[in-house]
């Protein structure tokens, strides 16, 4: 035990472990603790109870859960379709231009998400940039998607694009050209090469991108608030309300716990089913 503790690796890991313990595990434990406290109390010293869980499942919170999960899933699918060709280009075709594309996509990340979303509001607003230009140029007036579900999806797709794109670029650049050429040379059609070779070999990138986007979108709030006019209430919105206006920390904590554990289960399940080592070819 002492010898184990004296290893340089263990000693080097101490600072980061303490940081993780304080900054990551600590709050998680607190959230867990609060979620079993009596409703509307503000300390961790009450008698543990399942009251919050029961009130959540007997109320209509499933609506927010379903919307969050559904919108997150749709965002992942749309981003896969949009980002696959772009990242293919960046990994295999654009050459030096790929850096420029990376810049163009990465630079907006320096601007706050809320400001970028507000920019979209100005663009989509009635008599805003899009509507106003169309009216001025063509005299047509299109129905606005602002404050509706499509606007939320637009916002999610826009905000989380880099989180799908960059893992995909890395995933696709891990696929050796020669391996694809070999499959093609052995008679496979372009689609068979895509299905049998490219997708399985790029799977680490595809998985990481999809998981990142799914988990981020699941906890998203600003897109529904700013672009969606809260046309739907996301689960993160419910959590925020519980902690603030409702002054019901235990309920908010239980909602957070349910959200964290459901995304945790999903990740666990995916990584169990899909053997990354085998994909990368380490085994």
């Amino acid at each position: 035990m002492i010898r184990w503790l004296m290893q340089p690796g263990v000693r080097a890991a101490v600072p980061i472990s303490i940081l993780l313990l304080l900054g990551f595990i600590g709050p998680l434990l607190m959230v867990t603790g609060y979620s079993f406290m009596p409703p509307r109390t503000f300390s961790l010293t009450g008698t543990p109870t399942l009251a919050n869980f029961i009130s959540i499942i007997s109320d209509s919170y499933y609506i927010s859960f379903l919307w969050s999960v559904g919108l997150a899933a749709i965002t992942v699918l749309i981003l896969l379709v949009i980002c696959y060709p772009v990242s293919y280009g960046m990994a295999k075709m654009f050459g030096p231009w790929a850096n420029l594309v990376t810049m163009i996509i990465a630079v907006p990340l320096l601007v706050s998400e809320n400001i970028r979303l507000f920019g979209w509001v100005l663009f989509l607003l009635k008599n805003g940039i899009a509507d106003g230009s169309l009216q001025y140029l063509f005299g047509i007036h299109l129905p606005s998607i602002l404050y509706k579900v499509p606007a939320i999806i637009l916002g999610l797709v826009y905000v989380y694009l880099p989180f799908m794109l960059f893992p995909l670029v890395i995933g696709l650049s891990m696929v050796p050209n020669a391996v694809k050429e070999a499959a093609f040379d052995l008679g496979a059609s372009r689609f068979q090469v895509f299905r049998e070779i490219e997708v399985p070999l790029a799977m680490p990138g595809i998985l990481i991108g999809s998981l990142l986007v799914f988990v981020l979108a699941l906890g998203s709030l600003a897109e529904s608030k700013i672009l969606g006019g809260q046309a739907v209430i996301m689960i993160a919105d419910d959590i925020e309300s519980a902690f603030t206006f409702a002054q019901n920390w235990p309920k908010g904590a239980m909602l957070s716990l349910l959200l964290i554990s459901s995304s945790g289960c999903l990740i666990f399940f995916l990584f169990k089913r899909i053997d990354l080592d085998r994909i990368i070819g380490r085994r």
Partner: peptide
């Protein structure tokens, strides 16, 4: 026709 590649290009997965 087919080719044996310099890198062999075996399918690692």
């Amino acid at each position: 026709t087919c080719m044996v590649f310099q890198s062999l290009a075996l399918f690692p997965h």
